[in-house]
Design a binder for these strands. Structure first.
Lengths: 206, 206, 206, 206
DNA sequence: AATGAATGAGTGTTCATTCAT
DNA sequence: AATGAATGAACACTCATTCAT
């Protein structure tokens, strides 16, 4: 009653955190293995080794679980891509900025390609909005960068929008389709495509 | 039950064809109005004016109906885009070919944007394969065109693949996101992006 | 195709009516045996010898089934009690009218005492309103009768209300409690109680 | 664990009694606020400021808690009504006795009308028996009173039973239905109804 | 062929009760 | 004693599919 008052609750919170972790992990597995429609709460609970009722101690409903799984992935994706983009833009030339962004994106997607597939193919209203919202954020950053390079506002917006969609989907397609060529090749190709369009000096063809 | 055995089949096939037609049309309406999850077989049958049981006389299961709806849409899309591409490639320069293809694609998508949205956002493994298959066909054609222009084989393949994915997804995004700028602007932007990359003379900025 | 066009649908409707009947009967049994809370849709369906899904072909939800069971009972009760009351009031003296009403009420309740018990003890918002509404209807009729006999309006309302509640609950209690005396004895007692209060000549004590 | 074994029990019992008190109070609040179906054990425990598990240290199951809440209410009701009845019967005339009893009953019910409503409308077998048991006790007292006034035994029993049910339900209905007239009016009406029936001199109409 | 009633496994969710701590 | 996380059977309801007519 006197020794460790402040740390009293820690074990409980730790336990709780672990349960959330187990459920999220199980949710991710089930989502990847069975798709959104097949990701029933009972299946997720079973995969987490808990009873269906326990799941509801930690999440208010099914979509909250799925939302957490996707949310974490998107948090990671957004953080890393944003950072790559923001770090690359000011210092170096266009080619380097594009290259860094593409690589960051491929890194993230490549770590959980199956999850990204579900996200890309079945985004069930849960995550669709977020993806678009992030794309718009990047749109704005890219627009700013273009304005800084003297591109007229209207053109800047269109160009930014187009280029962002291009990078987003070409990287996604590379992971999902697994075409027969190496990652570096796509990176180079995509970088060149975007860089040229943005009017920077194209990187040499490797 | 005995009179005209030989002529029997034709009318029956005709009737059968009409039923399939009604079901597919109903399926499309329901899919667009209620999404994939809301497209229950009962709802489709009701919209077609038939009984749920009859639907199974013509389609083995729900996904077959959905598949047929999407299949026809993709048939149309593929036919028109292929034609635009094939007609444009030989005669004119790169910019024209790209422009014609982009316009054809936007035309098709624009005619049934809601259906395309369902296809793009909810395609539940039903249609994913077909879309990729068509993209690969266009990949090959584009590769051929590049080879004809002296591009080395490996580069040709990568460039074709990248450009095809770019056009596919930027057009789709334009329809689904409804960003604030005019269609002609995107067409010009996308055409310029692709044309420049392919090494053709970029079209003048309108 | 020509012989019996008008009667075509009859068998189907008949079948449908029978299913409704089976479900209502099963619902009544389950309600009586397990109470409102124990009357699960699965249990009712099983008692009716059908699948849970089939129940929903005939009723939109659980309360509709329960409502139908209780509704039919209350329809019967209201019809017979109203008739007894209305037929007795004009022609004969007060004692006869009261007597006829009490007998009618005991007849109806006595036919399905267990159902009446559920109704009286667990009326789960489903039927509560109806019971009160019917009581109010009788209130009005009784008030009218009293006004016709020269009772001042305010007194008439209170007296009618009191007497109606008395008859309603004493009869219900007799069925539910099964006290040790004969039905005729309660009928006589209740008739005398009410008749005296209404100022009529009390019937002789049997 | 060894020091004061003999005095241990008293404080514990006190503590235990307090816990029971808190649970019963919480149970009453929840019962009134959410009805029987909404009175989950978790909700009651939360309202009592204890954990769901602790509740089971003091009560074997949910119905025991509800039973205790209703039991206490009925204890109060029985005590006060019995006293009013017993005090009134010997000394004064019939009208006064009935009047005193009716007033006592309305007092008790009026103090916790919402609880009485739950008791009357949703008593899930938990309390039904007790209510009947109390009514029977009053039956006996009333029968005795009637026998003392020279009424033949069989008649006395029936009359007592009838009158007790009448008073019980008319008062309850007055609280639950909230008809438009004042309490004194019902008291007068009910007193007159019963008194007349018992053969006493009816009180003057106020 | 066509019907549409019937099916039944499945869904997301709740809650009285238990039990390891 | 007290906790509160964990349980799991049960609930109302859905829908792709089947089958007797």
């Amino acid at each position: 009653m006197s020794a460790r008052p402040a740390r009293r609750r820690a074990p409980q919170q730790e336990r709780s955190r672990q349960m959330v972790e187990r459920i999220v992990t199980a949710g991710r597995e089930v989502l990847v293995a069975h798709g959104y429609d097949g990701a029933s709460t009972n299946r997720i609970a079973a995969a987490a080794g808990i009873s269906p009722g326990s799941l509801y101690q930690y999440f208010p409903d099914k979509d909250a679980v799925v939302g957490e799984v996707l949310g974490r992935y998107l948090d990671d994706l957004e953080t890393r891509v944003s950072r790559a983009f923001l770090e690359a833009v000011p210092a170096r030339d266009v080619a380097d900025a594009v290259h860094a962004t593409v690589v960051a994106l491929l890194d993230v997607i490549g770590e959980q390609p199956d999850l990204h597939r579900v996200l890309a193919e079945q985004l069930p209203r849960t995550a669709g909005g977020r993806r678009v919202a992030f794309a718009r954020r990047i749109d704005e950053l890219a627009t700013m960068a273009l304005l800084g390079r003297g591109v007229p506002p209207e053109r800047a917006r269109v160009t930014a929008w187009t280029v962002v969609r291009t990078v987003e989907h070409v990287t996604t397609s590379y992971i999902l389709e697994r075409p027969g060529f190496d990652r570096e090749v796509v990176v180079a190709e995509l970088t060149r495509l975007v860089t040229t369009h943005l009017g920077g000096s194209a990187p040499g063809v490797s």
